[in-house]
Every structure is written in structure tokens, then in C-alpha cells.
Design a protein around this nucleic acid. Structure first.
Length: 400
RNA sequence: GUGGGUGUAGCUCAGCUGGUUAGAGCACCAGAUUGUGGUUCUGGGGGUCGUGGGUUCGAAACCCAUCAUCCACCCCA
């Protein structure tokens, strides 16, 4: 038997209902915020992700579905959505055109990892990207939209916020931190020593108590932000306060992708196991220019659809449409014609086997139909069709 | 890549310290005096016990390997 690849899932009933339910409502909310649908290819040149996500990240370092295609091109299944959207944005010369452009997208992403709860090799994201606005108002707007989406589906979450600084304040801070880490390196755990060179800020995330103690006197980013970043961050917090949005400032929140600057945020939930991030995002003002576009401020987020679906309850389905059944052989053809006609304006399924009325009613019930329509010898003679409303338990004869 | 758990019917599982025809519930199909559903009752179909080897008179049970899956680390949505 051929089975789906490791970490790749089919989306079958009843999960498929949640999937569609989520997509429809999240899209509707994004449109209300002025975002337009965009679809970009799943396969892109590998270089796109190396330059945007960053060579140092785990995503690029060890999680990419990368291969050489038949034309000898180095290509890659997208591990995330932002890079492709930014590439399209630049390729279409929106950066030259200027102005504000807001997009939302959804689709499969691929990362070659060991699957576990809330983590798949092929998973789906719903994301938005906003280009051309540097104001903190857009940061707040994006966070508000994400919160609205999560609230719509009744998700329990905590909003975590941080500022990652910018090219003015981050590099010097990073150096200062590394210098500090050098002084305590020997006492740090193995992981932290590795982090020092790959992603130093991560050390604050270490679960080792000894490391946490050693890090007490370490310099913190919040105190080392440049004036521009500090002002931006404080303005955003103030706006969120005025909107009554509660949040937690998490100085250890480091988005895993290299392109983020200033605002970074994450919505985490308790009932997801170890992979507790439902959605994450942030500002990436330098990415467009990194990818050879004209410098354009931008911010976005992505929601992990499978993770979110773990927590969504779909409203119970109402009975809907018709089930058509025949009580005798001669009724099958007229029944088929009647069913086709009814289908012009209603959901219709039909049983092709001749069965007892009782069996047909059972079948209609199982199909979740509102009405059971049956033709037997009596109906055939009178050129009528018998219809029962399974909910109201009423029945009537209708003209064929 | 590393560590741990689990693989018996479509699903959830039972199967005592190895003992002969491998079970239950749910689901599915068919019936319950012949044209009235969801409940109930009766019957039925369906299993290479993940796979390969080994121990044994005898293995679903024990051992080894392998594959799959789940959870965790790492990291992230």
C-alpha cells in the first residue's frame, strides 16, 4: 500500500469543514482590513529563501525541501510565505510604484523536520503582508486583525510582544551581548554555547536554570534600542493599551527568521503541546531592499492553520437539501430526472438502488438531508413525488 | 539528527504468567410479516495480529532487526 509521506496529511472529513470554515472567515476579516488575495508559486528558486529567511536560520540550514530540477535549477518548496510575496511584489514593481499594498494568502508550506504535535512537514498557513507603511499604527492594525481572527474562532491565547531593534541598534547590541557571553562561556550549557554563534539572543530562552542565573547581569535589548525603535515600540504599546488589548512583553521573543526588525509578536496557546505558537509575525522593513527592491517598510503575520484547527469548533451542521430514493425499478429514471431538476437550486443526493421506504428514510437521515423524496408505484401512477420533511416530520405529495 | 512510547477489524481497544476456531464496543450492510428515519432487537461481512527473522511441541504474547506512527529535544506556524 502506498501511503502519504511522513509528516503530510490528507484533509478529509470532518476536518475539511474546519479548514474551509477557517479560510472563509479569516479571508473575510482580512478583506475588511483592506487586504487583497494573492497567490504565489509553491516552488521558488532556492536563493530566494537563502537571502530572505537567512542562511543562519534552521529553516534554511536543515529544513528545506530543496532539489535540482530537470533544467538544472536549484529550487525549493517554500518553507514560509513571506519571501514569495515579497518576490512577487518586487517583480511586479510595486516597490517603484510606491503607495500602500496589502495582501493575504494561504496555502501549503514545507519544512523537512521530524513531525510531532502541531508540526508537520507539509502544513498550511494563512498570512498577510502589508507594504509601504512604516507607522506604528499599521503594527497595531495588523495585531488587531490577527486578534480579531483568533477571537472569531474562540481561541485562547496570550499575545507576546518584543522589539528586535533595527540595523542601527541591533548589531551593536548583539556584539555587546556576545562580548558578555564570552565572559561566561565556560559555565554555559552546550546549547547556549552553540546559540552564542548562531543566534545569541536565544540564550535568554534557555530552560537551564544555571544559564538563567548566569544571564542575570546580561545586557537587555529593550534598554539598548535606538531612539527611533524605542519611540516606535512605546507608541505601539500605548495604542494597544488604549484598545484594551492585553499583552506580555517577552524580551526573549526572537522570531526565527532573519528578516525581522522592530516589532515582533507571537500568539501562543496553552493547549497545543510543545509547539505553542498559533501565529507569529513582525515588521521587516529591510527585506524588500535585501531582495533588490526599493526600500519599502513592511509588516506581516502568519497563522498555522493546523495548529489553529486543533482548537476550533465548527458550528453544528443543519440538515440540508434532498435525498431521492426509488421504491421500484420503473421509478429510477423519472426519479433521476426529478433529482437533476431539483439540483438546479438545492443540494441533492440520490440512492440508485431500489429499497424499502424505511431503508430510504434511513439513508436520507444518514446523508444529513432535510427532505426525503420518494417515488414508488403509487406516485408513478399519480405522476407525483412523495416528500417528507425529516425535521418537521411532515409529508406531502408534489407534482412531478 | 537524538531520546522515549505505541503498532491486533474501517475506528477505539481487550486478549491473564506463551496453549489450539483471535474478541468487544462503535461503524458498515441486511432484516424485525411486506410504504415511514434518528432509539431498540436480530443476523451478516470484514483481521497476512506492521514486516522479516529467531526461541519453542506451540507465539498476537518472549528476543532481535526493520518500517510506520505518536510524543519530546532542537527549532518554528
Amino acid at each position: 500500500m502506498i501511503t502519504a509521506l511522513r509528516g503530510m496529511k490528507d484533509i478529509l472529513p470532518p476536518q475539511n469543514q474546519k479548514f474551509v470554515y477557517f479560510l472563509e472567515n479569516a479571508s473575510a476579516i482580512a478583506r475588511r482590513y483592506g487586504f487583497e488575495f494573492i497567490e504565489t508559486p509553491i516552488l521558488e528558486e532556492t536563493a530566494l529563501f537563502k537571502r530572505s529567511v537567512g542562511e543562519s536560520s534552521d529553516i534554511v540550514g536543515k529544513e528545506m525541501y530543496q532539489f535540482i530540477d530537470k533544467g538544472g535549477h536549484d529550487v525549493c518548496l517554500r518553507p514560509e510565505g513571506t519571501a514569495g510575496v515579497v518576490r512577487a511584489f518586487i517583480e511586479k514593481k510595486y516597490d517603484r510604484q510606491g503607495g500602500i499594498h496589502r495582501f493575504f494568502y494561504h496555502g501549503p508550506m514545507f519544512r523537512y523536520e521530524r513531525p510531532q504535535k502541531g508540526r508537520l512537514r507539509q502544513f498550511h498557513q494563512f498570512g498577510v503582508e502589508s507594504f509601504g507603511v512604516s507607522s506604528h499604527f499599521e503594527d497595531a492594525n495588523i495585531i488587531l486583525m490577527l486578534k480579531e481572527i483568533l477571537d472569531f474562532f474562540g481561541i485562547n491565547y496570550t499575545l507576546k510582544l518584543n522589539s528586535l531593534g533595527c540595523s542601527t541598534c541591533m548589531p551593536p547590541y548583539r556584539e555587546r551581548l556576545v562580548t558578555f557571553l564570552d565572559t561566561i562561556e565556560d559555565a554555559l550549557c552546550e546549547d547556549c554555547r552553540r546559540r552564542k554563534s548562531t543566534n545569541p539572543i536565544r540564550v535568554f530562552d534557555c530552560k537551564n536554570e544555571k544559564c538563567q542565573q548566569l544571564l542575570e547581569p546580561a545586557p537587555r535589548l529593550r534598554q539598548n534600542l535606538c531612539e527611533v525603535c524605542d519611540t516606535h515600540f512605546n507608541a505601539l504599546l500605548s495604542l494597544l493599551d488604549q484598545q484594551g488589548i492585553s499583552y506580555e512583553i517577552d524580551p526573549n521573543l526572537v522570531r526565527g527568521l532573519d528578516y525581522y526588525n522592530k516589532t515582533a509578536f507571537e500568539f501562543v496557546s496553552g493547549d497545543l503541546g510543545a509547539q505553542n505558537a498559533v501565529a507569529g509575525g513582525g515588521r521587516y522593513d529591510k527585506l524588500v531592499s535585501f531582495l533588490d527592491g526599493k526600500e519599502t517598510p513592511a509588516i506581516g503575520f502568519a497563522i498555522g492553520i493546523e495548529r489553529l484547527m486543533e482548537m476550533i469548533e465548527v458550528p453544528r451542521q443543519e440538515r440540508e437539501g434532498y435525498y431521492f430514493g426509488a421504491l421500484c425499478e420503473e421509478a429510477l429514471t423519472p426519479l433521476f430526472l426529478a433529482a437533476s431538476k431539483e439540483r438546479e437550486h438545492d443540494k441533492v443526493t440520490m440512492g440508485y438502488d431500489v429499497k424499502s421506504l424505511r431503508a430510504h428514510l434511513k439513508a436520507a437521515d444518514k446523508a444529513g438531508a432535510r427532505y426525503c423524496a420518494v417515488i414508488g408505484e403509487n406516485e408513478l401512477a399519480a405522476k407525483k413525488i412523495w416528500v417528507k420533511d425529516l425535521e418537521a416530520k411532515t409529508e406531502e405529495m408534489r407534482e412531478l
